[in-house]
Amino acid sequence: MTLAALGSFTARLAADPALRDKVHAANGLDEVVAIAAEQGDTISKTTLLREQARAVAETPDHHLEGINSWADALMVCFGATDKD
């Protein structure tokens, strides 16, 4: 996976409420990777986790406090949320 593929996938998430819902309903990381592949974005679990960890470290606390699932964390960290 390249960072470009991750950027492409998160841009899709930000623009598509149905895709966000699908990621929220995912049962785990493998399913999120499969959803990205369906969208044409080849991502790996390893890079996804590393980039998410890096983003979490840089995300303000008030954004992190509202996270209730892995999908929420993914979207908050990569700016693919419709919430402030």
Rank of each mutant, 00 (worst) to 15 (best):
M1W: 04
M1H: 13
L3E: 13
A4F: 13
G7C: 11
G7V: 04
G7T: 13
S8V: 11
S8N: 15
F9N: 03
F9Y: 12
T10H: 08
T10C: 05
T10K: 06
R12E: 15
L13K: 11
L13C: 11
A14N: 12
A14V: 00
A15G: 11
D16R: 01
D16G: 01
D16Q: 05
D16Y: 02
P17D: 04
P17A: 10
A18F: 03
L19K: 03
R20C: 00
D21S: 08
D21F: 00
D21H: 03
K22E: 14
V23A: 01
V23S: 03
H24R: 12
H24S: 08
A25K: 08
A25E: 02
A26M: 00
N27S: 14
G28Q: 03
G28M: 04
G28I: 05
L29I: 15
D30S: 10
D30T: 09
E31L: 06
E31R: 00
E31P: 01
I35R: 01
I35A: 02
A36P: 09
A36Y: 04
A36R: 05
A36F: 04
A36L: 05
A37W: 00
A37Y: 00
E38R: 02
E38Q: 12
E38P: 09
Q39I: 01
G40C: 02
D41Q: 09
T42E: 12
I43A: 02
K45N: 12
K45H: 10
T47L: 14
T47C: 01
L48P: 09
L48Q: 09
L49Y: 00
L49E: 08
L49D: 06
R50G: 01
E51V: 11
E51A: 13
A53K: 08
A53S: 15
R54P: 06
R54K: 14
V56Y: 05
V56L: 14
A57Q: 14
A57D: 10
D61Q: 15
D61I: 15
D61A: 15
H63I: 06
H63T: 05
L64Q: 08
L64A: 13
E65K: 14
G66C: 05
G66P: 11
N68P: 04
N68C: 10
S69D: 11
W70K: 10
W70Y: 15
A71Q: 08
A71D: 13
A71T: 12
D72E: 09
D72H: 14
A73V: 06
A73R: 14
L74F: 15
L74W: 13
L74E: 10
M75Y: 07
V76Y: 02
F78Q: 04
A80L: 05
A80S: 12
T81Y: 03
T81L: 02
T81C: 04
T81I: 07
D82L: 03
D84M: 08
D84W: 08
D84C: 00
